[in-house]
Amino acid sequence: MWRVLIVEDDPEMRSFFESCVARSPALALAGCVGTVAHARDCLARPGEGVDVLLTDLGLPDGSGLEVIRQARLTHPDCETLVISMFGDEDNVLASIEAGALGYIHKDAAPEDIAQTILEMKAGGSPISPMIARRVLTKYAARQAAVPPPAAAPPPVERPPLSRREQEVLGLIARGFSYQEIANLQGVSVHTVQAHIKSLYSKLAVHSKMEAVFEATRMGMLPRHD
């Protein structure tokens, strides 16, 4: 079972997250707190592992970024999912740099957050489509601002994606979840994860966001200005 630490200052939202975790046989609650200080205490408890950190960013006594960094130091295998009202590029990029693997806007939070956690533990990087678009736009702008090198390296030859991998990639770019893709394709979630793992390898990326950006750069997906 994956042990989940919930850090959320809104009592109603915290209760919702806690009930989602409690209903999943694959998850166990490691703690449910509302401040940075209490989160630090939970992460500092000897002998108690934390496999997943589910955290907000705007907390009464500080930023969830502090909690993410602490979790990364004390529990190196812990994976972080941010669920926040902050959807701007700076907060998203700061969370990713601190160690977060997923970022969901509260307005787009799924009905069952446990499924999103399990998708992340299976190798995914859940991110709200709205936020993904903003981050990709910001990242593209940053890349465009960087002066080109004196001598551009030769293009890297990438193995071609299979037809099914291309279909899955297109659905990822449109914001569909693993389960939704499996339903649309008429296959199991495990098969979808296998396709995603293969296309990640072929594109030399590690997350949905990177896959969409790289595929767009390579002309596999249409650009949206």
Rank of each mutant, 00 (worst) to 15 (best):
M1C: 02
W2S: 13
W2R: 11
I6C: 06
I6T: 13
D10Q: 09
D10E: 13
F17Y: 15
A22Y: 07
S24K: 04
L27P: 01
G31V: 04
G31Y: 07
G31K: 03
G31R: 05
C32A: 15
V33L: 02
V33F: 04
V36Y: 11
R40V: 03
D41W: 01
D41M: 07
V52Q: 11
D56S: 09
L57A: 08
L59E: 04
D61R: 06
G62L: 04
S63T: 11
G64I: 03
G64R: 04
E66K: 05
V67A: 07
A71G: 15
H75E: 06
P76W: 08
P76K: 09
E79F: 00
L81D: 07
F86I: 06
F86L: 15
D88N: 14
I96D: 01
E97H: 07
G99C: 04
E111N: 07
E111R: 10
I113M: 15
Q115M: 12
G123A: 12
P126G: 14
P126K: 13
I127T: 13
S128I: 14
P129L: 15
M130Q: 13
M130T: 12
I131A: 04
I131G: 03
A132D: 11
R134E: 12
K138F: 13
A141D: 12
R142K: 09
P148Q: 13
P149S: 08
A150Q: 10
A150G: 07
E157K: 11
R158S: 14
P159W: 12
S162K: 01
S162D: 05
Q166P: 00
A173F: 07
G175K: 10
G175Q: 08
F176H: 14
Y178N: 10
Y178V: 15
Y178K: 02
Q179F: 06
E180K: 14
I181E: 04
I181M: 11
I181W: 01
A182Q: 03
N183T: 05
S188W: 11
S188Q: 10
H190G: 05
T191K: 10
A194L: 13
K197R: 14
Y200G: 10
S201F: 01
S201L: 12
K202D: 03
L203Y: 09
K208D: 15
A215C: 13
A215N: 14
M218R: 15
M220V: 01
M220N: 11
L221S: 06
L221V: 05
L221Q: 07
L221T: 06
R223G: 13
